[in-house]
Design a binder for these strands. Structure first.
Length: 862
DNA sequence: GCAAGGTC
């Protein structure tokens, strides 16, 4: 029997599509990558009986990157990223092993049906899948068509079955347009990001960002926030005047009226009108207009609207909201949360979904009423063809969902109920008054039927808004007339909800990526989230955007993306050639890039105003090995050392304290060592500022301190202070911390393990001799006579911290997962003899210190 | 270390 291999874009869709096509009769199993499942069933396919095998990917299989050597920021000129640097496709998520998984499952299959999402990205993934599985398919029918594409616009029985009956083929042009987009975003984004990061890195002391990123989505997103900031800054408040009139009739009826002229911007004009109004003593009702109005029930919920409400009403950021929503989805409480669609599928069982909510005390009354009196037809929304709108899938309680989970679920559920409820109806009453020759109005709303506002009380019409009934010709007493001086107010910072709307309107990002872009500009220190989830740009964000405006406004305008997308659409429609569009667009941006580089002084001028030059910041700490002058330590992140004489900046480990280390120098370059420590309870080690960025030996990497230095003789190096293999991790060495007394300790130079020993010892040293059984370095400990815990009257002892019985109680080796040879395999402490024996020095067992130092020297200095 | 787009 032949096999048809079918692939969807995500595990949940593979499941629902195979369930529909097999009419619920498929068998399922988990794939070896742990993320995807395989659903199998038998059925008919182009007139034959076949076995269907359906699985999925998890989004894109591949991602685009530069080939390895072009990812070295120090050696590659960013300008090369526009054309010279070759790109390659890499597996998007190596942990999922997607290519291997697809090949394993597709091996020997005869036909392929691609069920990826019906958008350009999905079309692109079709070809990623084909690329992976083509070599393993059964190729014995050379003349037969074997690759098919299913086109569906919703996940409903009819639509899926129709798609199966009318299979087409994957669209190469649409896929190519995505390839072009990927390459453009990569080349342009990385070139600008690397250039401006490197240009400003180390230039300003208080510039608190080590990565100054640029991107066709994130930069315009930042632009929106700064645009609002500029409006606020340039706002000049203007005084204006209004006339407020208070009228009454009898004891219980008093109204405050609005002036039909609203306001005037000239005090004297206002005064003149006030004088006119003041000549009257009464206000006459000229007309009473009553209109029945409706507040429409909401459209079915899509992702962007959910994000807006979550931000503005629940105070939850988009990234967090999506995390919570995904959890609700995987636990089965809500439907798939990433959708653009605001229209329920025709066969969606609204009543069944509603019935599940009938017993929830928070809304059971409204739900029961709707079920017994009949639900309302939902408004016609937009069907984007992706997924149904977001709805609750089963009943839930607050205790099972947790705080934010429940709040989001509650909103989604109330929104769902509202979409099948009736519109809110109210009567709008406008009473027009004349006072002397001036006209005033008073408007009010009276609720007729609450409709959906019953479940969305925050939308309801307040009782205070209603007006008393009165008729034309009635006369009210004029109690009070005042001229009030007011001021126009500046707008406030952009709310996250407003930003989401702007992004949606300009096509910046997608429902899935909007939260990512907003998160990016927060993490890069371009904006901060203020109260009410308003986004306030930082100095850095403001300066960057103003700089782009100054140099090339297109870099920050929201049109940058749509202009490129227009070009990409030409590829998708087959009207333009992939290579030509890519070449053309890259050429434009390459020129923009070179112009930007040439004009960077314009941005730098703005930087200078907001940030202080690095030479003016920081305090002198340690001496430079080149000029022997003091270098300045800049504490602000990223903390670093700067030598103003040599104009060099040296990076330091982050998240810890830096001190001068006894004015000791590195024997290799004469830089004064500094001591890094992670706090009093953590570990500390010295490092050479130069070696830290420029590893001195072949077996060292950037970012290593003296505790990882393989210098054969230096007193601070691993070679002299290393004791033995880490008790926890694979490759670490426990290294003696010479600064730790009197609470002496050794710490792993790779992981976070710290072992305390010999508390209150007078002196602790690492000997050059090794333990005979485990090859760890011996330690020489001196105690004061009065305090010595050593047996007899001894004050000094030399031994192995792991094996020596004298040290047993003086070393806090209480780690359960002891890896040390002496503590493995249930052996007693002293029975390990022989285990370490015979191991080659320098091998995995011999952790440090080859016994022949000359041999070691020869190895290092070849 | 960088983009934006899928999704887990």
């Amino acid at each position: 029997m032949k096999t048809v291999f079918m692939v969807a874009e995500k595990p949940s869709l593979a499941q629902s599509i195979s369930k529909i096509l097999s009419r619920g009769s498929c068998t399922s199993r988990k794939g070896f990558n742990g993320a995807c499942s395989i659903h199998e069933y038998s059925g008919g396919f182009s007139g034959q009986n076949v076995r269907f095998k359906m699985t999925s990917v998890c989004g894109h299989v591949m991602t685009l990157d530069f080939i390895g050597k072009y990812n070295n920021w120090d050696k590659v000129d960013p300008a090369e990223l526009f054309s010279k640097a070759p790109t390659e496709k890499k597996e998007a998520n190596p942990k999922l092993n997607m290519v291997k998984f697809l090949q394993a499952e597709a091996r020997g299959c005869d036909y392929v049906v691609l069920w990826l999402d019906c958008d350009k990205e999905g079309e692109n993934i079709c070809f990623e899948v084909l690329e992976a599985i083509m070599p393993v398919l059964n190729k014995s029918y050379a003349n037969e068509k074997t690759i098919f594409r299913a086109k569906f616009s919703s996940i409903t029985d009819t639509d899926i079955c129709n798609a199966m009956n009318r299979l087409g083929e994957p669209n190469r042009n649409e896929a190519l347009s995505v390839d072009a987009r990927q390459e453009l975003d990569l080349r342009i984004g990385c070139a600008f990001t690397r250039f401006q990061t490197k240009y400003f890195q180390g230039k300003y002391g208080n510039l608190d960002s080590s990565l100054i990123s640029f991107g066709p989505c994130q930069t315009p997103t930042l632009g929106f926030c700064v645009e609002r900031h500029d409006k606020i800054q340039s706002f000049k408040p203007e005084p204006y005047w209004i006339i407020q009139a208070k009228v009454s009739k009898g004891k219980d009826l008093a109204l405050t009226l609005d002036w039909d002229r609203v306001r005037v911007f000239d005090r004297e004009v206002g005064q003149m009108f006030l004088n006119i109004v003041k000549t009257a003593r009464e206000a006459k009702v000229e007309s009473v207009i009553k209109k029945e109005k409706a507040k429409q029930r909401p459209l079915a919920l899509n992702t962007v609207e959910m994000l807006r409400v979550a931000s503005s009403a629940l105070g939850m950021g988009p990234q967090h909201t999506m995390q919570v929503a995904e959890r609700l989805y995987t636990q089965g409480y809500i439907s798939y949360p990433r959708t653009e669609t605001t229209h329920y599928p025709e066969n969606f069982d609204l009543k069944a979904a509603l019935r599940q909510q009938a017993n929830n005390p928070f809304w059971s009354e409204s739900v029961k009423a709707l079920l017994s009196e009949g639900i309302n037809r939902p408004r016609k929304g937009n069907d984007a063809g992706d997924h149904p709108p977001i709805t609750p899938m089963r009943s839930a309680t607050e205790s099972e969902l947790g705080s934010d989970g429940w709040r989001l679920y509650e909103y989604i559920t109330r929104h769902f109920i509202a979409t099948v409820s009736y519109d809110c109806k109210y009567l709008q009453t406008s009473i027009a008054f004349s006072i002397s020759s001036e006209n005033f109005t008073c408007t009010g709303k009276t609720l007729l039927s609450a409709g959906f506002t019953e479940v969305m009380p925050w939308q309801s019409i307040a009782k205070e808004e209603s007006l008393p009934s009165c008729e034309r010709g009635e006369v009210f007493v004029l109690d009070e007339v005042k001229l009030l001086e007011k001021q126009t107010n500046p707008p406030d910072y952009l709310t996250e909800a407003e930003l989401i709307s702007l992004m949606e309107k300009h096509g910046i990002g997608t429902d899935a990526s909007i939260p990512v872009h907003i998160n990016n500009i927060c993490q890069r220190n371009y904006v901060t989230v203020e109260s009410g989830r308003r986004l306030k740009p930082t100095n850095l964000g403001i300066v960057l955007v103003h700089g782009y405006y100054k140099i090339d406004a297109e870099l920050v305008l929201p049109t940058i993306r749509s202009a490129v997308e227009k070009q990409l659409n030409l590829i998708a429609q087959g009207k333009a050639n992939f290579k030509q569009v890519l070449q053309f667009t890259l050429d434009i941006f390459k020129r923009k890039f070179h112009y930007f580089v040439d004009s960077i002084a314009g941005l730098d001028e703005l930087m200078e105003v907001s940030f202080s030059p690095i030479a003016a910041t920081g305090k002198p700490l340690s001496r430079c090995g080149k000029c022997h002058r003091f270098m300045k330590y800049i504490q602000a992140k990223p903390s670093r050392l700067h030598c103003s004489h040599c104009d060099e900046t040296y990076s330091l480990p982050q998240n810890g304290a830096i001190k001068l280390y006894k004015e000791l120098r590195c024997p290799l370059d004469e830089f004064e060592l500094v001591l890094w420590s992670s706090g009093s309870r953590g570990k500390s080690y010295p490092l050479c500022p130069y070696c830290y960025s420029n590893p001195p030996f072949r077996d060292m990497k950037k970012g290593m301190g003296c505790n990882e230095c393989t210098h054969p003789t230096c007193q601070h190096s691993l070679n002299n202070l290393g004791i033995g293999q880490c008790v926890e991790c694979e490759h670490g060495v426990m290294t003696f911390d010479t600064t730790s007394g009197p609470k002496w300790k050794m710490a792993c130079n790779k992981c976070n393990v710290v072992v305390h020993f010999f508390e209150n010892a007078h002196k602790v040293r690492v000997s050059s001799d090794c333990c005979e059984s485990c090859e760890a370095s011996l330690v020489i400990v001196d105690f004061n006579k009065a305090k010595s815990p050593l047996p007899g009257d001894e004050t000094q002892h030399t031994g192995c911290v792991f094996c020596d019985p004298v040290f047993q109680d003086l070393v806090e080796l209480k780690h359960a997962a002891m890896k040390h040879p002496m503590h493995r395999g249930g052996q007693g402490r002293r029975q390990g003899r022989g285990r370490g024996r015979g191991r080659r020095p320098g091998g995995r067992g011999g952790l440090k210190k080859p016994k022949d130092k000359m041999a070691a020297l020869a190895a290092y200095f070849v």
